[in-house]
Structure formats: C-alpha cells, structure tokens
Amino acid sequence: MLADFAKGMLITFRHIFKPRVTVEYPEVKRPQSPIFRGRHILQRYENGLERCVGCALCAAACPPEAIYLEARENDPAAPVSAGERYSEVYQIHLLRCIWCGFCEEACPEDAIVMGPEFELANYSRRAFVLNKNDMLDTADKGFGTPPDLIVNFPL
C-alpha cells in the first residue's frame, strides 16, 4: 500500500520535468483544423461580385433562426451579385448562432462559409449582430477562393 503511494507520487514528480503542453495563448495559437467552424464569411467572385443570391436557404436551414436577410433584384447595369438577386440586408446574430454550419451546407452558391476567426469577444450585445459588411470578404483576404473543405474535404 505504501509502495502504491510512492509509485503515485513518483509519477507526479516525473511530470514536473516534462514539457508543458499548454501554449501561451494570445502569442501562440494552436493550428486549426481545415474544417474549423469559426465566424461566418460571405464570399465573392474574383471580379468582386458577391456570391450570395439572396435565396434564403441558409436562413431556412438555420436551426436557431439566427440569419435574417432581405433580397432585392439586381440592377443589370450595376449588379451586386452574380445572380438575378442579391441580399440587401444580411445579418447573423452570433449570440443565437450555434455554430452548426448548416448555413454553409445549405448555400447553393458557396456564398456563406465558416471562417477561421474565433476571437469574438465584445463589449455590447448589439455588437454580436453581424451585418453584411462585417462578414463580406475583401480583396486583401483573397476573395473568390471556394472554401477548402468543399474542394478537399478531409475524411
């Protein structure tokens, strides 16, 4: 019995000298899985047109009804999206979102995808309602690339 105690204590003692497994979070970040489901991104085509055609399939698929959108007809002279319609208002309520990724699956245009961003703390509840501008891909983020998981889904 005393030998058992000694054995247990020896194990914990050896662990003192083992390498630390925690990382210094804000400075060091762990690599993410390619199918990581972080904050949503609304993607565009290479020519800058939005992919979203305002079909509202994502809103229909969303279990907690976190997505709200209003669709409009595109002006053929100055189209916003590549389809007939586009979403004029597109909001996701992050406090309702359960990060299930159904919106991403439902979208026929690969417009909404879940990105790598996960540091979403904020000071007011209002700030958790994301608008289109908060989620739209900008040129510097390399818009137009379909999400990795659709091309190359790791199984």
Binding site: T12, F13, H15, I16, K18, P19, R20, V21, T22, E24
Partner: peptide, 13 residues
C-alpha cells in the same frame, strides 16, 4: 507554480 508544472502547465506567468 508547482501544481502547474506537475500538470504540465506553466502556472501563473
């Protein structure tokens, strides 16, 4: 600190 080391964490730093 010591409990951190035993649990392979850095402890308060």
């Amino acid at each position: 600190k010591l409990i951190g080391f035993i649990q392979q964490r850095p402890g308060p730093n």
